[in-house]
């Protein structure tokens, strides 16, 4: 699953065919569990000093990546942030390549130049990994403009946070995208914090969807802990965008269970608040729902979990064994050199 694009899935849970629905739910669960297990391993590897740099965990927010990316197909494009392990994995960037990038190895998806915050995979139309808050939003608009000018079918999905919503780049781009009718999905991951600053301290008006709508695009808020709600909203938005209705905005209400980054002592949140949100763990929510629908039992859950853990184990082993880029290649890829021509186009 992690090595290819998933087909743009039909919203099977609303359909009548129970087997198809069950399978689809299993895929979503697998997608979320892989992210969870991958990042739990990252914590261990970070403590063991195997991986370094800024590492921003997505744990708690997995339903957003799994649900939104379920609505996208191979012709579509993703632009992400520094908190993008989940987006990359759900998009199908191979777990091996992501882990190797965390290790800074030559086999990493950015050949060791990017690290955790700059994962790229042009073949899967995954255009990074941007660590300037809001910096990817204009870039995504440009990718969408190119798609529109060429009459292509693709939608560009840009992830960013509630903090980024305060940046000028978001507001400038929202206006431009509406003016030009760009095929752009603005996927705002509202996890209630920008580092240590809570939403109400960041924003005079905290209803982000309403503010986005004021630019003249369809915009609404979604329960970002419920993967089925997320995928339903994402499918509707992507349908509208593909039909030529211009940009859409989704405010995905979610929560990160971990600190902002590995450097963050997480002193600004109430433990009780974290516990309240943990009670709505997106993985557990779907798991429970599947169990009560008879789609999952202990054995099948254990099997799924083991497959994710094995995949992460294999990725770690491969990354450990992988070579590093030679220092003699330090200056490669700064500008185009003969033999460095881009692979995608």
């Amino acid at each position: 699953m992690s090595t290819s694009h998933r087909k743009p899935a039909k919203p099977a849970h609303r359909g009548t065919h129970q087997d198809a629905a069950a399978k689809h739910h299993r895929d979503l669960l697998a997608s979320m569990l892989l992210i969870r297990r991958f990042e739990e391993r990252c914590v261990e590897l970070y403590s063991a000093a195997k991986i370094r740099g800024f590492v921003h965990l997505y744990i708690g927010e997995e339903a957003v990546a799994a649900g939104v990316l379920d609505a996208l197909g191979p012709v579509d494009t993703v632009v992400s942030t520094y908190r993008e392990h989940g987006h990359a994995l759900a998009r199908g960037v191979p777990t091996d390549a992501v882990m190797a990038e965390m290790y800074g190895k030559a086999t990493g998806c950015s050949r060791g130049r990017g690290g955790s915050m700059h994962l790229f995979d042009v073949g899967r139309r995954f255009y990074g990994g941007n660590a300037i808050v809001g910096g990817g939003i204009p870039l995504a608009a440009g990718l969408a403009l190119a798609e529109k000018m060429r009459g292509g079918p693709g939608v560009v999905c840009c992830f960013f946070g509630d903090g980024a919503f305060a940046e000028g780049e978001f507001h400038e781009t929202a206006n431009l995208a509406v003016l030009w009718g760009l095929p752009l999905l603005l996927a705002c991951e509202n996890n209630l914090y920008a580092m240590g600053t809570p939403l109400r301290v960041e924003h005079g008006q905290t209803d982000l969807a309403m503010r986005a709508a004021s630019y003249g695009m369809p915009a609404w808020a979604v329960d970002g802990m419920d993967v089925l709600a997320v995928e339903d909203a994402a499918h509707r938005a992507v349908e509208g965008i593909r039909a030529g209705h211009g940009p859409y905005f989704l405010e995905l209400r979610t929560y990160r269970f971990r600190a902002h980054s590995m450097y963050d002592p997480d002193r600004y949140r109430d433990k009780a608040e974290i516990e309240r949100w943990r009670a709505r763990d997106p993985v557990v929510l779907l798991e429970r729902r599947m169990r009560s629908a008879g789609e999952l039992d202990d054995a099948s859950y254990a099997e799924l979990d083991r497959r994710c853990t094995d995949e992460v184990d294999r990725a770690v082993a491969a990354a450990e064994a992988a070579p590093v880029e030679p220092v003699s290649d330090l200056l490669r890829y700064v500008v185009t050199a003969a033999g460095d021509l881009p692979e995608a186009r």
Binding site: I137, P138, L139, G142, L143, G168, E172, T173, N175, L176
Partner: peptide, 20 residues
């Protein structure tokens, strides 16, 4: 373009990445 240097320069960059 609207008065939005960051957005339209970034849009140009993105379109270039896409092959324009």
């Amino acid at each position: 373009t609207p008065l939005s240097e960051s957005a339209f320069v970034g849009t140009g960059i993105g379109a270039a990445v896409a092959g324009m």
